[in-house]
Design a protein around this nucleic acid. Structure first.
Lengths: 256, 256
DNA sequence: AAGCCGATTCGACAATGTCGAATAGACACT
DNA sequence: AGTGTCTATTCGACATTGTCGAATCGGCTT
């Protein structure tokens, strides 16, 4: 692990958490001399990874990150294959759909197709959601014992009154997910918002992503028609990716 | 400039250009020993900035970039303020709208509102376009002599038959932009696609972003109604940001 | 099975980043 | 306006740290 790169990454992580920071604030947070932090920040700045606001001495994340992330998205085969099916899914259900993958114990949304009702909606691509409060997260964990064990080994934050923070309850949910090939989440992340997710399999049969539809909680539970559309989309995407079966064959029945 | 951070950034830049690279390919491109590159790549990997594909020994950009970019977008005041007006603009004109800022001599799209016709459209947020082939780029350069001089000092790539690569012609276009507060681009970036852009001003009156509508070239030239809607959107956003005047007062009449 | 190519590991060296002190600059308070 | 404090920034000496070359490992092809 190269020290200065590690520190640079930590600085970016810091700026991710609290939007605008001065050199000395970062130095205090990382317990480093300000001059060291300054050197790193200036290097990051010269490549556009951080920028300093016009208002002077505070730093924020920079535009180079956006350009890189755009290329990152382009490299994702799942995403390219999914877009057309997700659009169809949103059109048929009238709901927003999301595609997510696992990243460092969270779910990161790699594509988002809005509700087709013409209202203004925030783009959600790039948003991360703790796995245990997300329907997609539950699906991804249910088919990945290693990540599941990792996530459940740490304390689980509670985001709403409905959040499940009990590892054993989540383990039961994972079993249900493996049975139905569907994961649910009812106001566990955001009040008033619920979602259902299904797994997406790659060529080797592994679950590599999850697709979800998001609905207002007053439309809960989802109708059979919505679930069918969701399953259909997941199956079609998986087939395009060359998956041998769908629903995925559950992994060896170990404990997660 | 910290060496290892500089090298890390160059590696990310390399991966940005050619999606999948092995250690030795990067080493060759940067003229460094493979072991050095390996150390840097592994450090980047441990923070999620690069990932290696399941298929073995090739590296690609990683998901951490997406998460960071999402926070970057959230820090942009212009973007938050623009979204609602852009949605209105797209609704009224029936065209896709874009918001862009300058970054390292290019325009980077920081928000994109699709055509409201329900068809499937690629998300364009994060896409970068060379300034001289973009209506937004021309607007941004017209009001920023320093950047303009910088961009024009380098050879300008030609993307289509319509691309203007002659610095003097572009300088004339900049003058027209400053007169009309509108910049044009007709099939200069992508064949079959044209756009018009208007400047957005911040509190201090500086042009900090550009807003554009994109249309199929057979809808060229844009109608007066479209231009009015565009101007209206730019004016409204600028006003929300606290700009003293719109259209912006052109800068001191130096040569760019 | 052998050979090749690339990724990866390891250890010694010195180049490099780090740190503390000194400087410069911004801002608030008197 | 002047003074004080806070912060960012610059600079140079030191030794820590990253770098490099050689050796090892692993996969794939012939």
């Amino acid at each position: 692990m190269i020290q200065s790169i590690d520190r640079a990454a930590k600085i970016l992580g810091l700026l991710q958490g609290s939007r605008r920071l001065g050199i000395s604030e970062m130095a205090a947070a990382l317990d480093l001399p300000p001059s060291t932090v300054h050197g790193i920040v200036k290097s990051l700045q010269s490549h556009g990874f951080v920028a300093q606001q016009p208002s002077g001495n505070r730093y924020v994340l920079g535009p180079a990150l956006l350009k890189l992330s755009s290329v990152y998205l382009d490299t994702l085969d799942v995403r390219a294959r999914s877009m057309r099916w997700m659009h169809e899914l949103s059109r048929r259900t009238g709901l927003a759909s999301r595609l997510g993958v696992e990243s460092f114990g969270e779910v990161i949304v790699i594509h988002h197709d809005r509700r087709p009702d013409g209202t203004e909606q925030m783009p959600e691509t790039g948003v991360t959601i703790p796995s245990h409060v997300s329907a997609m997260g539950k699906v991804l964990l249910a088919y990945d014992a290693a990540h599941a064990a990792d996530v459940l080994s740490r304390p689980l934050p509670s985001l709403t009154a409905e959040t499940t923070t009990e590892p054993d309850l989540l383990r039961e949910e994972f079993e249900q997910v493996r049975r139905d090939a569907l994961g649910y989440e009812n106001e566990e992340a955001v009040i008033g918002e619920s979602s259902v997710a299904a797994p997406i399999c790659a060529e080797d049969g592994e679950v590599i992503a999850a697709i979800a539809v998001v609905m207002p909680s007053n439309a809960w539970p989802p109708t059979a028609a919505v679930l069918d559309d969701l399953r259909e989309a997941a199956r079609n995407i998986s087939r395009e990716l060359g998956a041998p079966t769908w629903p995925p064959r559950p992994p060896a029945p170990g404990q997660d």
